[in-house]
Nucleic acid binder design. Structure first.
Lengths: 252, 252
DNA sequence: CGTCCTGTTGAATAAAATCAACTACGGTGG
DNA sequence: CCACCGTAGTTGATTTTATTCAACAGGACG
């Protein structure tokens, strides 16, 4: 397995010292098994997590007894960054599958800003990607019906899995249960079931246990209220005045 | 009017050079009048905006014809940061009231990361506050009914206005129309109307044209599915290894 | 002075939730 | 090893919630 560094390197070109720092994060990765909680809402914040393998969902508990899943994280994602501004964690991180994850201590993040500006920019822009994704998600949950939410989610998921080379001809592992999908989309499990059934019967998707196949991508896209965002990559960095790696003085 | 710098100074202690940089942003502020569009979805991204006065809403247009307002921005907020990772703006920024705003060029943001690490951290943590707020908002839109969404929003708004000293005994300016509230909460204008009416008749709020008063804070809080987030302030920075200003070498 | 938008209310309709029942499956403990 | 229990998945019937449709009053603005 080659470490999924694509997220932080997506925007900035990194120096070899930058790479060393990132490799350092991998050293003490930890395995966590399915359904185990990585960190619960209200727990102390010691750092952020770098997800190497598997799926994690981050969720919020509401006082009305319902749970909202904010995001399903895939390999390469940084988890729990927003909680850095809170006294205690603002979200529960729960393993959807068996995962490998490493903890990056908060102090190491501070270091980046002092000494590794490119990684800091990478982290910052990565966090902005998350923000864009979350805003889109809000838009379909707030302004879409069940079918629209479902198709937008499936397309977004598919695009992200595809970017990480985790699909095969439209088919991918799909470990989410229908109750989880409900919490993700703001629907009941029953209604999720009916919505999936319709998508299945229409021939847009094929479901198996533990996997899913998108059978008609264009069809799904025609249902979705918006398409997954496309990011600028290196162009974002050059807009910020980024320089090619060779011209930058590296930290001694 | 004293510039609302509280956002960036909320976490890190700034050097006088940092302050100079920030004051530089204020120089060419611009007035924009009510209902004018600051930047439309799809427009080129030239930088981010610093809102000095007035309210702005950022929204997404969906293909089903509906609009989702992602956030109502108040004085001191930085707008349009997420679009830095997109080829063209991902959200429309529209003035809800007459506003004063200044544009910070993208290159100036890049500069921060290279030369003004504390401001960079401040910006980063500020962006994470936005992320936390957006996650919460998703939670009530996704998992709350109309009354819960409305009370959570009003409480959140009130807390933010209060932090900026823009309230007086529970009363504050409230320029949002009911259709706008609908787009904000994922409800129709009609249903917004009925929900407000119920809150009014129960004595939780008092409505006037252009303003609103929270008459029973505890009552509203009992309706809301979660309370506005509280942020760590300087504690967040010290967790990241932040040092008191005096001990830091400043850029020559 | 008309026109458009907001705010308001009532009535009809549609979407999703709730309630209920049953099957299948996985994991646990005896 | 097997019985049992809890959860997931599925479907039908009913109820709740919110939308849609419609109509009208009041202001803002050209």
């Amino acid at each position: 397995m080659q470490p999924p560094f694509h997220r932080l390197a997506e925007f900035v070109s990194l120096t070899s010292q930058d790479m060393d720092v990132m490799n350092g994060w991998l050293a003490g990765y930890r395995k966590v098994s399915r359904l185990r909680t990585l960190r619960r809402e209200g727990d102390p914040v010691t750092g952020v997590y770098f997800l190497l393998e598997g799926w994690v969902c981050s969720s919020l508990m509401l006082r009305n007894g319902r749970r909202q899943i904010a995001k399903v994280h895939l390999p390469g994602d940084m988890l729990g960054i927003p909680s850095l501004v809170l006294p205690t964690a603002g979200e529960t991180l729960e393993a959807v599958t068996d995962i490998k994850v490493s903890l990056i201590p908060a102090a190491a993040i501070g270091e980046l800003f002092e000494h590794r500006p490119r990684l800091a920019i990478g982290l910052f822009l990565n966090a902005q990607m998350e923000h864009v994704a979350l805003t889109q998600k809000l838009s379909w949950v707030g302004a879409g019906n069940a079918m629209e939410r479902m198709s937008a989610f499936l397309l977004d998921l598919f695009a992200r899995l595809d970017a990480g080379r985790l699909t095969e001809g439209g088919r991918f592992d799909f470990p989410l249960t229908q109750p989880q999908l409900g919490e993700l989309l703001g629907l009941t499990a029953v209604h999720v079931n009916r919505t999936l059934k319709r998508l299945d019967q229409t021939g847009f998707i094929v479901r198996g246990r533990g996997w899913l196949r998108i059978a008609d991508l264009a069809g799904l896209q025609s249902l979705a209220p918006n398409l997954p965002p496309r990011f600028s990559g290196p162009a974002a960095w050059s807009r910020l005045g980024g320089q090619p790696a060779a011209q930058i003085l590296t930290w001694p």
